[in-house]
Write a protein that binds this DNA or RNA. Structure first.
Lengths: 227, 227
DNA sequence: CGGCCACTTGAAAACCTTCAACCTATGTGG
DNA sequence: CCACATAGGTTGAAGGTTTTCAAGTGGCCG
């Protein structure tokens, strides 16, 4: 224990190292096709005690991979409430979404004593290098159990439907915010997606209509009200 | 319209082309940092009528990007029921998960008349090339609204909790399937994640215990029964 | 015109949440 | 080592929401 490589002694307890030298690298990268030594540069961060926070929501982007322990991901909703949206176990990625959004989407807190490594993503647009790392990350990302569980889970049916419509209208590229648009799904499909009975979707749309939050006629919807 | 490039005439109606030549490429790749001409090779597939299926669950991996229209993603559960798990709009990816799982995870069906392009992923392990494409895909993937919406949404509380425990025990690397393990989350956090009140989680665990589906004592759990 | 499918509406039953009390572990200070 | 404080966990009863079942409406296409 006292004959560690010098590179393990940089900083108080964070270690710049190469995944190829990590005894637990199989957990993170699988046992097939070990990456070339210089491909994955990870820095082992100081260990996290139970309850310690690795990421705050809104922080600048950073990407970690869990080495040991378990992290809980939480989002703070605009109304001040908090929800757990995910769990990360050893070998899983934390914070990837931040690179797409420009900021961390969720807070990450150690549910048990944990250790993580920070991954350095090559600067955007750097071009042709790092292909192997990127490929690994892409597959890993696609394999991840959940991106961030439906934040509407447990909300009342009316709010779930409202969130669905809102989300859809933002993703569909509408010319103006109060442009009428057509829902591509039947009420049954919307219900199946949101975990609601079709009748409940109908009634929820009715309530939203009555509350002036949107105007519904058949499959045509127009957003109304603030938001 | 009759002076199209010869490359647009290959096959009945699918077109091998370069995203840089596509008038709608902004929708797929954004307007900043256009990719080098040869980087993204996409093949426009024959148009999909409303109701047509692009992907069947279990098919070999394939990756598409939606050009126009809207696709619904559905999973068939072991009990025969189906659930909508996602929606894909223009510019969004369909089928990425299949590369991690070795097979398509969901079926994709056109909710409205749609058009898609098939993307050719460089063969795994090809190494240093294609970095720009991979980087784009990684960011796109991280930005995608949902990987596959919570498949437990709408299930009774007992089943949600059961699914959570089962999923956790599979992700945690346990030595044996009937090894006891410790849940890292409080009942309140599990409830927050599943959209249930903490008391409901307690009662659900009670029911599962009583039905011999698992043994719970405090935070220690052991799986029992078939699975 | 008939059939089908999506949508709508009403009433009863099932389920979940809420509220309130109590219990049990764990850790801290005396 | 005990007493206490605290956080997490458990249990019961009341009330609200959602599901289910049933029936009926409206549009679209053969």
């Amino acid at each position: 224990m006292h004959t560690l490589d010098r590179t393990r002694l940089r900083g108080v307890s964070s270690t710049e190292t190469d995944c190829a030298a990590c005894p637990a690298s199989r957990r993170c990268w699988g046992d097939v096709l070990p990456l070339p030594t210089e491909a994955v540069h990870a820095r082992r961060e100081p260990p996290l005690e139970r309850g310690a926070r690795l990421i705050e929501q809104g922080e600048p982007p950073a990407l970690y991979i869990v080495a040991t322990g378990c992290l809980v991901l939480r989002v703070s909703l605009p109304d001040g409430s908090q929800r757990v949206v995910g769990l990360r176990l050893p070998g899983e990625l934390v914070g990837l979404e931040s690179y797409a959004r420009g900021a961390q989407v969720y807070a990450a807190q150690a549910a048990t004593a944990s250790a993580v490594c920070r991954l350095r993503l090559p600067p955007a647009g750097s071009g042709t290098t790092h292909g192997a790392l990127l490929e690994r990350l892409l597959l890993k990302s696609a394999a991840q159990p959940e991106r961030a569980a439906a934040p509407w889970a447990g909300l009342p049916a009316v709010e779930r439907v409202a969130a669905f419509i809102e989300n859809y209208s933002q993703r569909a590229q509408l010319s103006a915010r109060d442009d009428p648009f057509k829902l591509p799904l039947t009420r049954a499909d919307i219900g199946s997606y949101l975990g609601l009975a079709p009748e409940t979707v109908v009634r929820a749309l009715g309530h939203l209509s009555q509350a002036q939050r949107l105007a519904v006629r058949g499959r045509t919807v127009r957003l109304g009200g603030p938001g």
